[in-house]
Write a protein that binds this DNA or RNA. Structure first.
Lengths: 407, 407
DNA sequence: CTGTTAGCGCTTTCAC
DNA sequence: GTGAAAGCGCTAACAG
């Protein structure tokens, strides 16, 4: 349990510095010496002491990945892709860096805790995946933390969540306590229909406008791989509208998550543009689930159909939720898509295999993860804006069809 | 990026030793001093240097989790549960230890590589999840590695894979080069129907016998959380047999994986016990997929039905594969379960929501992960055998029914 | 190309 | 209860 560099050096008849150089490979060493060292390493079964080298080199080969739910393939796919980028570009037979996947469970506190843990380990980079929680206090804390980390040399990449706000340039001293928005509620349960409409003002603008107005290319060094949740949802709703649906329900995810908000706003925007559905009606047809799992879909659909039995189509927060929605509908004796159309979001692997196959919006999770990994490793040069947006794509399948009675 | 213990000490007017003691909390320190230190820590936003403390303390707070496929919920659920155990029993507001989830992609080399990386970081414990690859050479290498690690104080836990063989006690000097079994092939593609029958001899006995015959309680310090893949598969086949099926196809996973072998053997055992199906016939009705994903199920089912059009039931390697099987059947115009029954394995969350709901064997993945985590942390006292077996359970749902013509 | 020499920041005896 | 000091094993100047 204790063979050190010095041992190897002694065995090979060289200094420990030479062994170190051979091992790190970034320094010229004579061929003969090198192989002698390598042999000694082998014979002694020497394994580098990571902490020691991290300490001496003031850097580590750890890359942190924060996910909201590791049991959800959405995150698994992204995390796997990020991790995949750690391999390949290595000298030896495998990855040199280690990916640390941290499961926050969607909890802001844990997010911060893991950030501390990662910082403690002097992680080389950190990728934060999935929707962020929109509590202003937490956002401020997180932004500060992330900026500080980035300033300290840790590469920070957001994947699937909105870019950090611009560093306060003209406004004043700091972003520490941005006044809470009019709607106010922090983490307390928002009223059933409140947060969406109240959030609307900062809405689409906040989600898209700033991208072009960036002064600081790297936004304080924090890079982003963005999904267009808004656009995807809008297109999906347009598809339903085109099919003739007018009573479109929406089973949304947790109200405080950015992903939820953006998708819902896209949906509302399509409705508004079409004009056939009032905002009130849209509101009435929206149900908020507490999470992104199937039971939320199941319960959401029951609630929705109780509230509005005439619903002819249901949009779900994501594919998993859509599965729950389908289950509930079936149980109520409603056929998909003959009686009610259903659509998901994400296009997880199972979605093509459900019965009926799920209409959804495909998010290139694999690609997004890979890009995030590249940005984190510095393999991919970040664009001037600091934001890489990946493309989504409508996947029209069997779960959506024209309504029975034409609307 | 560089506030150190000394800085905090200076600020608090104490020595760095005192600060260290306050922070680690395992040493008496005067209340006044402690709070003074804590305040300084806060004011300076001090974050411990993990590598430095790991080096000095010769230990780290990293826990490694090796998974075959991080995008597969099977592993995500287990990993999440392991990680969950890291929380709770802490002083501060969150986990003190960090879980490092490593995605091996099922590759033996990468498994070894990650083990090295983890060893390099001086991980406190390592949990290896999911089926192992049965190449004798790799097994030997892995076993040696694991034993060495365990001997060096790293806690090793196997979750969902068979226990390590007993350390060679009477046989000789070491387990370094156990003679390759009669069937011989190492990593080369095995013949379509070969490995299973050739593996049969070491079969059920190897899977169950040794458990009771253990002399070394901890098997060289390597603990195991075991699934009864064999028993689950056997019960599932018995269920189908009882329903009246006689032409039962099996779409298996990768041939070289222990999970595949055990499940297949359980299936074969039920068939043999029942007597109505010859071994040849069973062989003919077995198709091997290259992985555990839906496309393997899809292609496997097509192959199977081509080979044996009279098949009335299909058992899949797992739920995900079963999804692909269902898709293929539907595409061929066969209804599930009226024309063909289908069953999976694992009972992943989506399985209850497919249409029809999938008959399967529930594996308590969450519980298994939690147990593995506890063993890894030393929170749970290992049983004398070193092996914790978790219970499985048949989940009979709508995808299985009696065959059309009674057999 | 290789050896020498300082630390990296923390933990931990050992005194006081 | 607290401080002083000696490393933990490695890297990175700096000489040669």
């Amino acid at each position: 349990m204790a063979v050190t560099l010095a041992d190897v050096a002694a065995r090979a008849g060289v200094s420990s510095a030479t062994v170190s150089r051979v091992l790190s490979g970034n320094y010229p060493v004579a061929g003969a010496t090198r192989s002698r060292v390598l042999r000694a390493v082998d014979e002694l079964e020497y394994v580098v002491n990571g902490p020691a080298s991290s300490l001496a080199a003031a850097s580590s080969d750890l890359l942190g990945i924060l996910v909201n739910d590791i049991a959800d393939p959405f995150f698994g796919i992204i995390a796997g892709a990020v991790q995949g980028e750690l391999e390949g570009r290595t000298d030896g037979p495998g990855p040199r860096k280690l990916a640390v996947v941290c499961n926050t469970g969607g909890s802001p506190e844990r997010e911060l805790t893991y950030l501390t843990l990662l910082q403690r380990q002097r992680a080389a980079a950190i990728v934060l995946t999935g929707g962020a929680v929109e509590d202003p206090q937490h956002s401020a804390a997180l932004t500060t933390r992330l900026r500080r980390l980035a300033a300290g040399g840790t590469r920070i990449v957001l994947c699937g969540r909105p870019p950090l706000d611009e560093p306060a340039a003209a406004t004043g001293t700091g972003a520490r306590q941005p006044g809470p928005p009019p709607s106010g509620p922090e983490l307390s349960g928002p009223p059933p229909s409140g947060p969406v409409s109240s959030a609307k003002p900062r809405s689409a603008a906040g989600d898209r406008g700033p991208l072009s107005a960036a002064h600081d290319g790297t936004r304080g060094g924090v890079l982003t791989v963005a999904f267009d949740n808004y656009g995807g949802a809008r297109e999906l709703t347009e598809h339903l509208l085109a099919l003739g649906h007018r009573h479109i329900g929406y089973v949304a995810g947790p109200a405080e998550r950015t992903t939820t908000r953006h998708r819902l706003e896209g949906h509302r925007a399509a409705l508004a543009a079409h004009g056939g559905v009032t905002a009130d009606r849209a509101e009435q047809l929206t149900v908020h689930g507490g999470g992104y799992d199937r039971s939320c879909g199941y319960q959401g659909a029951r609630e929705l159909l109780r509230r509005a039995p005439g619903t002819t189509a249901v949009l779900a927060a994501n594919d998993t939720v859509a599965l729950g929605v389908c289950a509930a509908l079936r149980e109520m004796g409603l056929r998909v898509p003959q009686d009610v159309s259903v659509a998901g979001f994400d296009d997880l692997p199972f979605s093509v295999d459900t019965s009926p196959a799920l209409t959804t919006v495909r998010l290139p999770l694999q690609e997004a993860g890979a890009r995030a990994g590249q940005l984190a490793l510095g393999t991919l040069a970040p664009p001037p804006s600091g934001i890489v947006t990946v493309r989504h794509e409508l996947r029209l399948r069997a779960s959506t069809a024209p309504p029975r009675t034409g609307g």
